[in-house]
Amino acid sequence: MAVLLLAEVNNGELSMDATAKAVTASKALGDVTVLCAGASAADAAKEAATIDGVAKVLVAEDPALGHRLAESTADLIVSLAGDYDHIVAPATTDAKNVLPRLAALLDVMMLTDVSGVVDGDTFERPIYAGNAIQTVKSGDAKKVVSFRTASFDAAGTGGSAAVETVGGASASGLSEWVEDKVAESDRPELTSAGIVVSGGRGVGSEDDFALIEKLADKLGAAVGASRAAVDSGFAPNDWQVGQTGKVVAPDLYIAVGISGAIQHLAGMKDSKIIVAINKDEEAPIFQVADYGLVADLFEAVPELTEKL
């Protein structure tokens, strides 16, 4: 059994955490070949070759693969698919864009956001915002799977797999990249941070979101947000934690001014320790919190930042 794992590569850079977590998830399925695709991907491939448990790395470099446009990336994987039983990736927005397209081209069903591997055909995945876990067995000859990174530990490094170049990408002519708006930040990445501090509608404004950011910086944490905070313009879209945002499972998650709707809980309830600060003692967030503090966040958060 052989696995082809689409590595997370952004502008030539490997996202080690997401890729290494997907490697862990794939190990039970067979020998793992990692594919690094992009306009430039050679450096990413070299790095991916160091992940423990990787048997081989394929590198596909072509301007047509830049910015991971779904059409050309899916076509490339179709051309490689013959040798593999499982084609997998970490469940990032890039993979969610590309893999279902690939699955349809291969005429197989997609397994999205898999949180557990039972065997080569059988997988667990959360449905209904994580309120149920479904175990499904695929009858398809090839399985196309995205893995929920929060459910797996990252594989270590120290390996030295062989790197091979593959060709065959061509521009689809269907889509072209225009621009990226990516905020540069020194903070840890939301999905790999050990601590996450998130703010909700209760924070009240974009300016006041600085309170959340100060606490996060004191702790070396990533910053998250509820949908309401993002919709209200307090925080950028890529901070959204939840059913339809990012799924995180840090050692410590601090929810500030967040009520705890099921859609939010879906993205953070597997965190090791959850702290909730909310002025409403009835807020549902307290039902999942290890430590709850009923307080006005405008008093409690600065005090907490100072005392930590």
Binding site: V108, M109, L111, Q134, G292, L293, L304
Partner: peptide, 28 residues
């Protein structure tokens, strides 16, 4: 005809109930 057969559907792991703290000092 579905390609995925549902073997079972289960409840997610429940979180154990936590505790309320009275102050920031206690939380820290």
């Amino acid at each position: 005809t579905p390609r995925l057969t549902v073997v079972k559907t289960s409840e997610p792991a429940e979180r154990a109930a936590g505790e309320m703290v009275g102050s920031v000092d206690e939380l820290v």
